Simulated assay, not measured.
Amino acid sequence: MKKAIIFDMDGSLFQTNLILEPALAETFDVLRAKGLWQGETPIEKYREIMGVPLPVVWETLCPMHTLAIREESDALFLVKLIERIRNGWGALYPNAEQTLATLAENYELYIASNGLTEYLQAIVEIYQLERFFKGTYSIQSISSGHKSDLVKKVIEENAIECGAVVGDRSSDIQAAHDNQLLSVGVRFDFAQETELRKADIVIDDLKSLLDLKLG
């Protein structure tokens, strides 16, 4: 039986909080300089919606802006994030590498993320995650924009018969359930208790994944 564990990236494997706020602040500094934003950077609002696809982020943060301005802001934000990743200002969560190395001995590992391909590739390269993962899947690879459909693609393309989805938000938990996989919620930076209650298992440390029994 082909067993796999599918990981979310932001807030699950990668400590996005270390680069998110400064990158967002820099993006809104540009908007302010252009006269397109007044007031503080909406950090709290972004924390609330963390995990949704980026177009939804900008619709939520800047509802009065035109689509063109949102797309420009999105592109700038992506540049700022990748700069910080490549400068080594991010980090994986504690025990990530050791846990992944052990899990890879018994399971096929995949990443399924709402992040864009270029962003995910930067993280994979900097932290040499190709050592552990068979594939990285971005939300850009499916038309629907739904995490459940992305996980379904991972399952179908790799003939996965059983496994788990590890993530911090409701979209990860729902994707597991929609695809008859075990849902593992991680209680990290962006996680919300109301969402985690829907998970089959909730963990506070990635090394707890070593206790999983799949198949």
Rank of each mutant, 00 (worst) to 15 (best):
M1S: 05
M1N: 09
K3A: 15
K3R: 15
A4D: 06
I5G: 04
G11P: 09
L13F: 05
Q15C: 13
Q15R: 15
N17V: 14
L18E: 10
L20K: 04
P22W: 04
A23D: 01
L24P: 06
L24W: 08
A25Y: 10
T27E: 00
D29I: 07
V30H: 01
R32W: 07
A33P: 04
L36G: 04
L36S: 06
W37I: 13
W37D: 08
I43G: 03
G51C: 00
V52W: 04
V52Q: 08
P55C: 01
P55W: 00
V56T: 07
V57E: 00
T60L: 01
L61W: 09
C62W: 09
T66A: 13
T66S: 15
I69H: 08
I69N: 07
R70P: 06
R70L: 02
R70I: 02
E71F: 00
E72C: 12
D74W: 08
A75L: 04
F77T: 09
F77H: 15
K80R: 15
K80L: 10
L81Y: 12
E83L: 14
I85L: 12
I85S: 10
R86I: 13
N87H: 11
G88V: 13
W89Q: 15
W89V: 05
P94S: 05
P94A: 04
N95S: 12
N95I: 02
A96Y: 01
A96H: 02
E97Q: 14
E97R: 15
Q98M: 06
L103T: 09
A104Y: 04
E108L: 14
Y110G: 12
Y110S: 11
A112F: 04
L116E: 10
T117N: 12
T117D: 09
Q121S: 15
A122E: 03
I123P: 04
V124W: 11
V124S: 12
L129Y: 07
E130D: 15
R131Q: 08
F132T: 11
F133M: 12
K134I: 00
K134G: 03
K134N: 06
S138Y: 04
I139W: 02
I142N: 03
S143L: 02
S143F: 03
S144T: 08
G145Q: 00
S148R: 15
S148M: 08
L150A: 02
K152G: 00
V154W: 03
I155G: 00
I155F: 05
E157I: 05
N158L: 13
A159N: 08
A159M: 02
E161A: 07
C162M: 06
G163C: 08
V166L: 01
S171R: 11
Q174S: 12
A176H: 11
H177R: 06
H177S: 07
N179K: 08
N179I: 14
Q180N: 14
Q180D: 13
S183R: 12
V184D: 09
R187E: 09
F188M: 13
F190D: 04
A191Y: 06
A191V: 12
E193G: 06
E193A: 10
T194M: 13
E195V: 01
L196G: 02
L196E: 03
L196W: 02
K198E: 14
K198F: 03
A199P: 00
D200T: 08
V202P: 11
V202S: 12
D204L: 07
D204W: 03
D205H: 14
D205G: 12
D205I: 13
L206A: 10
L206M: 11
K207V: 14
L209P: 01
D211P: 05
L214V: 10
L214P: 01
G215R: 10
G215L: 09
